[in-house]
Design a protein around this nucleic acid. Structure first.
Lengths: 349, 349
DNA sequence: GCCATCGATAGGTACGTACTATTTTTCGTT
DNA sequence: AACGAAAAATAGTACGTACCTATCGATGGC
């Protein structure tokens, strides 16, 4: 049995979310609510305290209680949460830099955290966000291809009208949320057709099993092969996950995959530059030469790909523009605008 | 006139901070407090609510109200705030990486923010930290050489027993706080003696006016010159601040400084690599050659110093070890340990 | 037309009472 | 000694009352 003040608070939350209280200026007085809900004024006050803690409402003695949708600036500065899987590794510094450059020019404090692609950390971080309401959130989904145990927390963000922009990875279940991603299905196709143009026919791939990007790149990959009339051989495909990234090539299935490469494969589409590099290490240990014996193509155009030799073929996306786009969308959403999701195209490097 | 519940809350805060309530397990009941303070139970409850919001206290129905000093883990994960002046620029990624590597291995979520060396942002961020209590804070001071308007907020962190480690820059006023810094006074001396060893005698310097590092490096610089029996000429010293960094060399005083360099100066100690680079641009525009006409030495050993040509002499400190040290200290402090401040030595590169 | 005053209205503080839901302790029985 | 039921202790919910204080708007005097 829910306590009355909870019930009142929930009812008010619903009303606010439904836009029943217009335009954010002045609505509802304690005495009126007391009559409306048939409870005492104390109970109403207790309920309103909850809303106040959530930043949904602002009380002014002598004046009234004000619904504050729209940017609830805190001392004039917006505060935005940014949650990515990693911060200092790989392509994330570039993305963060892009986000930062937009937010900082808008008098906006940013709070940056990393999930390390673990749902328990994602949970802890989302709970923090819910405790200290922020004006908006940019977040990269965690293991987006697996059932996510934190969907309910995202729903609560939605209920509280906190704008959320997903970047890079998003949860297909959350249809209402905006995302800024790369067009991974098209990327998969591009990678394959780039290889086919070079006359390579026997194409394998390494994909990530626990996020959507991996699934979509594989889908594009498979579709492109099929359209070219080429078989998609399961033996030429290797799946890995966050947890076994550092050793999947050494395990039994990985070893089988490597033997197959040696035997009858011309080229491999790699999930990203990191994987490509790990593969190259294994290949050079087995004295398979790249690109003479085997061609590689990968995604992300990270620092890895330009440093290593021979230089990798990689699909690139403008990483800082990526972050900037997400940040700009979020700011517009905080201003109350409706935004559409976008999938940015890849470019071959 | 402070309301009673505020007074009660403050009194309790003081008692807790003073360690009057032992060992964090079980103390104070509402009925007792009601008698002790001579107020109603409702008022006591209102006071305790404040403490609860601050995370100082935990209430369990049927059991009691528990003082929670020590790591108040949130679902088993610690949460730590990290505030630096910048995140993605210059030497900060390395420092952040160091912090991150320690914290992430301890099941710890990190929330990273930047002040851009502005005290208003520092204020907004500290207020956020006070609203959502964290288990600890690593922070780089903002304009540490100027009177800081946010000292009161730091005092409040201290009152709440939230461990704070200053990194890089700290406020001398806050004597009780721990800091992890570079030994800037010694660094200033080292820079000068390195130049003197090369036989250079007429030494100038560029220093930052608004943070302690600038003042200390200048102090070491001046002391070393004096001990060598050389004059410290004000005309060979140029001061800049965060705000005029990008143009101080173009302004009148900067121009005078540059003329003086051309006239009778052998070497310049630069506050950091960034400044050194900006100076080199100006010098090459005036066709003054480095190091033939003028030697430069600077601080930080950032990516700049190794990329630019000719390579800079720069004083280096291990940036990621720096961050790791701060993070380790903080974690130990969260466990209740007393920690000492350290000043890490420089090394010439 | 301007300004001071005052009253109505809003939320804020403070206390009291009664009862509820949990947890802890106590105590009697087996 | 072990168990379990009753009692006590403790925080949570709910309502009522009274009064305080800030805000805003209306009234009225100049």
């Amino acid at each position: 049995m829910e306590p009355k003040y909870q019930a009142v608070a929930d009812a008010l939350r619903r009303d606010i979310a439904a836009g029943l209280y217009r335009d954010g200026d002045t609505l509802l007085t304690e005495a009126e609510l007391k009559d409306q809900f048939g409870v005492s004024r104390q109970t109403v006050r207790q309920a309103i305290s909850l809303l106040e803690n959530d930043g949904l409402v602002l009380r002014r003695r002598g004046s009234g209680t004000y619904v504050t949708h729209g940017p609830r600036k805190h001392n004039g500065t917006l505060s935005v949460g940014v949650i990515t899987t990693y911060i200092t590794d790989y392509i994330f510094p570039s993305i963060v830099r892009g986000i930062e450059s937009v937010l900082s020019s808008e008098n906006c404090v940013m709070s940056l955290s990393a999930t390390y692609n673990r749902t328990d950390r994602e949970r802890a971080l989302l709970e923090r966000v819910l405790e200290t309401p922020v004006d908006g959130l940019i977040i990269e989904g965690t293991k987006t291809a697996l059932p996510n145990p934190n969907i309910a927390l995202y729903e609560r963000l939605w209920e509280r009208n906190i704008p959320v922009v997903f970047i890079n990875g998003y949860y297909p279940q959350l249809k209402r949320n905006v995302h800024v991603v790369t067009d991974d299905e098209a990327g998969g196709r591009m990678a394959v057709s780039a290889l086919l143009e070079r006359g390579l026919r026997r194409v394998g791939g390494i994909f990530k099993s626990d996020d959507m990007q991996g699934h979509l790149r594989y889908q594009g990959f498979a579709a492109a092969l099929e359209e070219a009339g080429l078989p998609v051989s399961d033996e030429r495909i290797c799946w890995f996950s966050t947890e076994n990234l550092s050793r999947f090539l050494c395990e039994e299935t990985g070893a089988a995959f490597l033997r197959r490469l040696r035997a009858d494969t011309d080229a491999v589409v790699c999930y990203n530059d990191d994987v490509a590099l790990r593969l190259m290490e294994q290949l050079s240990a087995q004295s398979i030469s790249v690109p003479d014996d085997l061609s590689l193509i990968s995604f992300d155009n990270s620092a890895f790909s330009s440093i290593c030799s021979p230089k990798l073929s990689t699909l690139s996306h403008p990483k800082d523009a990526f972050g900037r786009e997400a940040a700009r969308k979020l700011l517009r959403m905080i201003e109350g605008a409706q935004e559409e999701s976008v999938a940015l195209p890849w470019e071959l490097v």
